[in-house]
Design a binder for these strands. Sequence first.
DNA 1: GTGTACTGGTTGAACTCTCAATAAAGTTGG
DNA 2: CCAACTTTATTGAGAGTTCAACCAGTACAC
Lengths: 164, 164
Amino acid sequence: MSETRWLTSCEQEVWRAFITAADALTDQFARQLQRDSGMPYTYYEILVALSEAPNRTLRMSELAGARGSSRSRLSHAVARLEEAGWVTRSTCPTDKRGSFAQLTEEGFAALEAAAPGHVTEVREKLFDVLSAEQVGQLGEISKAILRGLGVPDPPGCPAGEPGR
Amino acid sequence: MSETRWLTSCEQEVWRAFITAADALTDQFARQLQRDSGMPYTYYEILVALSEAPNRTLRMSELAGARGSSRSRLSHAVARLEEAGWVTRSTCPTDKRGSFAQLTEEGFAALEAAAPGHVTEVREKLFDVLSAEQVGQLGEISKAILRGLGVPDPPGCPAGEPGR
DNA sequence: GTGTACTGGTTGAACTCTCAATAAAGTTGG
DNA sequence: CCAACTTTATTGAGAGTTCAACCAGTACAC
């Protein structure tokens, strides 16, 4: 054990600004979604993940792994989503321990209804306040953090592509 | 109402990397604190805010405002911190509606015990994985986001100060 | 003064998340 | 084959957050 390497005042400032901004931002999005679409942000993410999967279906464990969610959390969440009629569960025929979660039409409709408001919020509160250069920097910084945490980052846009 | 301005694929990638990184990072810190010091991150922040206040005392509303916490949340949290013996409450003599929260010696000791582990985590998982340039960029980006959200950012280090 | 509105803070219920325990199905090695 | 282990998913209790409702106490008006 060595001595604690304390933060310099500059680092402290950056740290506080970052944690405050990240927190306020996620809070903003969570509230917007809850208010306008009646779903927590984590549930929205589940619906998004399912909507992008082949046949709009994923194993519970894949769904949990897709974002850093625990199995337990997912069980509770999907139970709730099933109540809402947005997802159905079925057991895997080849491995009877496993469960599939599938997005229903209602779930997809709910997602489509929620998406515009959410995207608008992300654009206004994040991309509109940053320069193109800063957006690039933020991407690099985020990836560096993810690497440091041992989270695999998805491959992406090779810096210069027009996009969409 | 105009058309939704959707995200380009590059923007999507940055957005996901950012939200994932911010999430994983805060999660990491929250777990580390809970595991090693038995307190949630928000409680740690409350103790920090109190420790920096004159006489280690703040009005409940100031404490709530200091970070984006609701009054209700603070009431519950401080009630819990009082149970733990880390904070005491007293009514304001000039305005009998108001309450003061004051950090106890035990609370200060708990904070001092928790700080090194937390700071070490912040250094390893954030500052060690970024270049000095990126740290500066992250500071600017965070401040821009805060401005966009209407959150006043504290004044700071004028770019070039050695720090601490 | 009394009525009205506002502010500071607390409370309770509903909900989400975490952690530990559990059940059930699959895997491995003698 | 069967016992020990691992994996997949669920469950229940406990803790924190949110939202709405709620008391005081204060401020402003007439």
